[in-house]
Design a protein around this nucleic acid. Sequence first.
RNA 1: GCCGGGAUGGCGGAACUGGCAGACGCAGCGGACUUAAAAUCCGCAGGGCUUAAACGGCUCGUGGGGGUUCGAGUCCCCCUCUCGGCACCA
Length: 862
Amino acid sequence: MSEITETKITASQPEQRELRYEPQRIEEKWHARWEADPALYAAEPHTSKRKKYYVLEMLPYPSGALHMGHVRNYAIGDALARYMWMNGYNVLHPMGWDAFGLPAENAAIKNNVPPRQWTLSNIAHMKAQMKRIGFAYDWSREVATCLPEYYKWNQWFFLKLYEKGLAYRKKSKVNWCPECATVLANEQVVDGCCWRHEETQVQQQELEQWFVRTTNYSEELLAGLDKLEGWPEKVRTMQRNWIGRSEGALIDFKIDGAISGTEKITVFTTRIDTIYGATSIQLAPEHPLVAELVGNDPHLHSKVEDLSREQARAREVGDVGTIEKHGVFTGRYACNPFNQEKVPIWVANYILMDYGTGAIMSVPAHDERDHEFAQKYGLEIRIVILPRRIGQPPAPGEPESPVLPYTEKDSLLINSGEFSQLSNLEAIEKMSAFAEQNGFGKRTVTYRLKDWGISRQRYWGTPIPMLYCEKCGVVPVPEKDLPVLLPENVDITLQGGSPLGRVPGFVNATCPKCGGSARRETDTMDTFVDSSWYFYRYTNAKLADRPLDTATVNYWFPIDQYIGGVEHAILHLIYSRFWTKFMRDLGLVKNDEPARRLFTQGMVIKDGAKMSKSKGNVVSPDDMVAKFGADSTRMYALFATSPDRELDWQEAGVEGVHRFLGRAYRFVMRNAGAVHNAPSGNGSRGATGSAELSPKARQIERKLHQTIKRISEDFQGRWHFNTSVAAIMEFVNQLYAADDEIGAGKFPPGLLGDVQRKLVLMLAPFAPYVAAELWEMLGETKTLLRYPWPAFDPALAKEDEIAYAVQINGKLRSHVIVPAESPEVLVRERALADDKVRAAVEGKEIAKVIVVAGKLVNVVVR
RNA sequence: GCCGGGAUGGCGGAACUGGCAGACGCAGCGGACUUAAAAUCCGCAGGGCUUAAACGGCUCGUGGGGGUUCGAGUCCCCCUCUCGGCACCA
C-alpha cells in the first residue's frame, strides 16, 4: 500500500501496473462518468414497464461530514437499490437534507457564520462525499428542508392542521432546555435531560405553545402497528409502549362536606375490581381541587408545596419512580360509591397530574406503590382478591399473603359485597357496568401519548404562519402569502425568547382580516415537522404550486423499504405515521402508513465503544476512502457483520476487503482477453457442452450457480450481506484454485466468460466502482444498473456426490461419499460398510440407524 | 423493576427449519517469487493428550448449571454478565 513501492513497480515493471488494483484511479474515472448518469434517475410513473420500488434511507442532518453510521446506512440501501434495478424494477432512491436545526445556530454563534451559509456548505461537502462513495442517488429529486421551496409546505400543512382543528395554542408547562434556550417535545426529553445536551437538565416552564393533536390518532397509530408486519417487532413494541393505551374506568368519589362548586373527585383506575380495597384517595399536588381542600391551612399549604417541588425535581432529574413517596392528609374524606365507606383524601408526590385524572383510589393490598405508601403512613391494607379459589392450598412458591395485583383468571374477589366470589376479570366487567348504571362512573381509555408541542423559540426553523391582531385575535397567514420567509442577517444569541422577536421587519405585519397592524408568531416549528413528510416530496421535488402530486405519490407509495437507525423508532417514526394519516384524511394520499417495510441497522462502534470525539475513536469515512477506496469501505461495512447488529470497525478488516477486491480485479484483468472473442453464452456453458467440462471446470460452474443462489436468497430474505460477500470471496478463491487449468487456457472460453460476467454482476451492488471497471474490461457497454441480475440454474448448482458424515452414538467417526440422491438404503449400507464403523460396531448390537438425507448417518449401538 | 437483543477461537464473525461447530475475513506461522523488502501466490491453523515426526487416534469445547433427543450453539427450565428501550402511567 505504500506509495514508494508503487512508484517503483510502475517504473521498473510497467506490465505489472495494470494488474495492480488501484481504487483511486478507477473510482475517480467512474465518479466523473456517473456525475450525469441517467441510469441513476427513476422513471416517472407509468413511463416504464418496470414495477416500482421505493427504497429510502433516512435523510441526514448536514452536520458537516458523513460519519460511519451514515456510510453503513447508505451502503445497505444502495446495495438494495442496485439489486432491485438489476431485478427489473423502476427504483426510486432519493436523498435529501434535514437542514433546519440548532447546530447551525450554535455554529453561527461560535464562528460568526450565518446558519444558512453554514448549512448549505455542509450540504455541498456531504453531497460530494456521498458521490465519492458512489451511492446511486437520484439527485434530481434532492430536498433541503431549510429552503423556502420546501418549508413553504410545512407552513401550508400547518394551516391545514389549524383549519381542521388539529393545531391549537395553549399555555402549558413545557420542557425547557436552558442550553438550547428552547422548548422540547416530551419525546425529546431523555432521562430528564435534553436529547441533544445529555448533561443538561430540562426545566419546567409555563409558555403559550402551538400543539398538534397527535392524540386524535392515538387509536389508529396503535392499531396500525399490528399491520406493519414488515417493521421490526422491537420498534412496534416501543411505539406501543409510547402510545401507552390503558383501558379502565373513571369513578366519582363524593367529597364529604361539599366545597364551593365541586362535590366529587374523579379517579382513573384500570383495576376497578379492587375498589373495595381502596383505603384512601390520592391527589397529584397540581390537582385543581387541592387548593380548595387545603383552604387557609398554612401548614398544609407548605406541605403540598413541598410535595409539588419534590415531584418537579424528580422529573427534572429523571428519576421519577425512585424518589421516596411522601404525602399529606388533607383532613377531608370522600365516599366510595360502591360501599359508601368514607376514605381519607391525601395529596401525594407520586401522583402525576398529566396522566388519567391526576387522582387515584389507593389500594395498598394490590398495588406496589400504594402498598409502600400505606405502610409508611399506617393506612389500612385490605385484601380483596385472592389468587385462587378459597380452600385450595397455595401453589408452590405462591405467597400466602396476596399483596399483589392479581390478574389470573381464577383469582377471586373477597370482601367485595355482592361482587365477592367473582373472578377479577368478571368483576371488572360487572363493576364497570354497575358504575355506569348508577351514574357514578364510566368506562374509558387513556393514553400516555400527548399532543405534540411544536413551538420552538429558535431562529433556524420554519416560521409558524400565524398572526396576532389586537382586533381579530389569532389569524392564520393566508395561503397565497406563503411562504412566510425566514429573514436573513439575524443576530443570533442564546438570550431568552425567539430570535425572530428581535427582528422588527419580521414581527410587524398587517392583519389580513382587518388590515390593521398585527404581530407575527415568532416561534419556529420543531424540525421533526420537516422530516414527517419529506419522503413524499421526493416523488416530485420541484412541484411549485402544491406540496405533492397525488397521482405520482400514489404510484410510489408506500415506501417499499425504509432504512435507518433505531434511535428514530419513536420520534420520527410516530410523527411521520401521524402525518401520513393526516394527509390521507386531507385526501392527498391514499396510503395509511408511510412505509411497508422498515429496517433498523445496528450502530457502528470502535473498540467496543460508540464513536465519539471525546473518546477519540472516530473513524472518518474520508480517511478510509483515501486509504482503501470507496468500494472497500462500503463493502467492509456490509461484510463485517449482518446489518442489524452492532458493527465494530476494524481497519484491518477494510484492508482485507481491499485485498479481496484486488484478487477479483486481477482475475478478470488476466482472463478478460481470453473471452473477448468467445461467444457470449446466455447459458452458463456458452458453446461448450456439459460432457466436455473437466472436473475442475464443472466444480467452478457449480460453485458459480451456488453463489448466485446464496446472494439472491440473502437479498430476498434475511439481508445477511456479510455472508453474501463471504460467498463471493469463496467463489473467487475457487477460481484461483483452478488457476492451473484456467491459466493454461484449458477452460472453455464460454464458461470463463460467463464466470467473469456473473462475478462482476454479483459484485455490482456491493462494490460498484470496481464492478463498472471490470464490466467495461469485459467489453460490456450496457450500464450495470440496467443489466439483469444473473439467474441460477438449480440443476447446475447441484452436487454430483455427497459426503455423508457418519456418527456412532452421535459422535463423528467417518465420512462416506455417495452419489447425490442415493436412496436411503444405499447410504445406510455404505455407512455400515465403512471400516471405522465396522470396527466400532464389532461385538455390539446396532439399536438404530438414522439417516438424514443429504447430511449424515448416525449409528446407535449398545 | 418491566420489555427486548446479545454472550461462539487471539479478534470481527459463520452455522437459515435441531444434524460434520468455527464458513469468510483479520492477526499468526510456514513455503514460493525476490539480491532484499513490499506486493502477490500456495499452504497450516480451537484447546489438550497420544506420536521422534507426519499421518492418524483419543478427548474437551459455543457465558454457567440442569433437562429433552439417536443427536443441542440451536429446543425447555434455572442462573450470571452485557447492551438497548421503558419506568411512580394508577
